[in-house]
C-alpha cells in the first residue's frame, strides 16, 4: 500500500499506526496481527502478562526487529519497517529499556550531552563545536529529573531509581516526538514510583508516550487509556476500570 492511496484519516492524524503486525521467532508467534493507533499527544499504558509481546512491539517500532507482515507508520508518513534503529531514533522515537541502560563510565552530564539532539555524524562529533543552548537544555533536564546535584557523578554510581530518571532525561534530551518507556518503575520505592508518575505526566503534556508497566498502582496514577496485550494481540482497550472489568483480562492477567 502506498501513501497516495491511503485516504485513511486515522493514519494521517496518528503519531503511531500499527496494523496487522506479526512477528515470529523460530515458529513462536510473538505478535499476531497486532494493531494499535496512538494519537498525537496521547499517553498510552500497555499492560499484559509476560510473553504478551510488549517488548517485541517496542522492538518493531524502533527498528530492532523486522515484522514478518503488517504495517507500521510513524507520523503519518514514515514506514518504520524499512528503517533501522539510528534512522528511527533520528526521526524522533526515543526508547527507554526495561533494565536501566545508561553509560556507566560517563558522568551524568556527559550522558545527557550524548543524548541531546544534535548532529550525530562522526565529523560533527570529532571536529564540531558544542552547539549553543546545549548547556541550557542539560540544566533544564537535570532539574526535571531531579539530578541537578549529581551532574558530575559517574552514572554507574547512581542509585537504581536515579538511573531510571537519568535514562528518561536522556530521552527528553533527544527531544523525540514519541517516547517508548519500558517498565519505568520496576524496582522503585513507592515514593520514587509516585515521583516517576508525576514526571511522565509532565512529559506527556508535550510528547506522545507509550508506557509498558506491570505496576497497576502506577498505571492508575497515570490515569490514561490502557491497552492490554495477550499472546501477541490486543485483548482489551479502554480506561483502566473498563479493562480491569474485562472478563478475559481478569482471567489471563489480573487473576481472580
Amino acid at each position: 500500500m502506498t501513501l497516495a492511496d491511503t485516504a485513511n484519516p486515522t493514519l494521517t492524524s496518528s503519531i503511531l499506526y500499527l496494523d496487522g503486525i506479526s512477528v515470529s521467532f523460530d515458529g513462536y508467534k510473538a505478535l499476531r496481527e497486532l494493531s494499535l493507533v496512538l494519537q498525537r499527544g496521547e499517553m498510552r499504558a500497555i499492560i499484559g502478562p509476560n510473553g504478551a509481546g510488549k517488548t517485541t512491539m517496542m522492538d518493531v517500532i524502533t527498528g530492532k526487529t523486522r515484522p514478518d507482515s503488517g504495517e507500521a507508520m510513524f507520523d503519518g508518513k514514515y514506514d518504520l519497517t524499512r528503517l533501522d534503529e539510528a534512522d528511527i531514533a533520528t526521526l524522533g522515537i526515543g526508547r527507554k529499556f526495561q533494565k536501566p541502560t545508561v553509560f556507566e563510565n560517563h558522568t551524568v552530564e556527559d550522558n545527557l550531552l550524548l543524548a541531546v539532539k544534535a548532529p550525530r555524524g562522526v565529523r560533527a562529533t570529532l571536529f564540531g563545536r558544542a552547539e549553543p543552548g546545549v548547556r541550557a537544555t542539560i540544566d533544564r533536564i537535570l532539574v526535571t529529573t531531579r539530578l541537578q546535584d549529581h551532574r558530575a557523578r559517574v552514572a554507574g554510581s547512581l542509585s537504581h531509581g536515579q538511573k531510571q530518571w537519568l535514562e528518561i532525561g536522556m530521552l527528553l534530551a533527544q527531544d523525540p516526538k514519541l517516547l517508548l518507556v519500558d517498565e519505568p518503575v520496576a524496582g522503585m520505592t513507592d515514593a520514587e514510583t509516585a515521583a516517576t508518575a508525576e514526571l511522565l505526566r509532565e512529559i506527556a503534556r508535550t510528547h506522545s508516550v507509550v508506557v509498558v508497566e506491570h505496576d497497576m498502582t502506577f498505571v492508575r496514577e497515570l490515569g490514561v487509556k490502557v491497552t492490554c496485550l495477550h499472546e501477541g494481540a490486543v485483548l482489551a482497550e479502554g480506561t483502566l476500570d473498563q479493562v480491569s472489568a474485562h472478563p478475559r483480562v481478569v482471567e489471563v492477567y489480573l487473576g481472580r
Partner: peptide, 10 residues
C-alpha cells in the same frame, strides 16, 4: 559500554 543504547539514540 552500551552499544544498542547508542543506536537507539540515533
Amino acid at each position: 559500554d552500551a552499544e544498542s543504547r547508542m543506536r537507539f539514540l540515533g
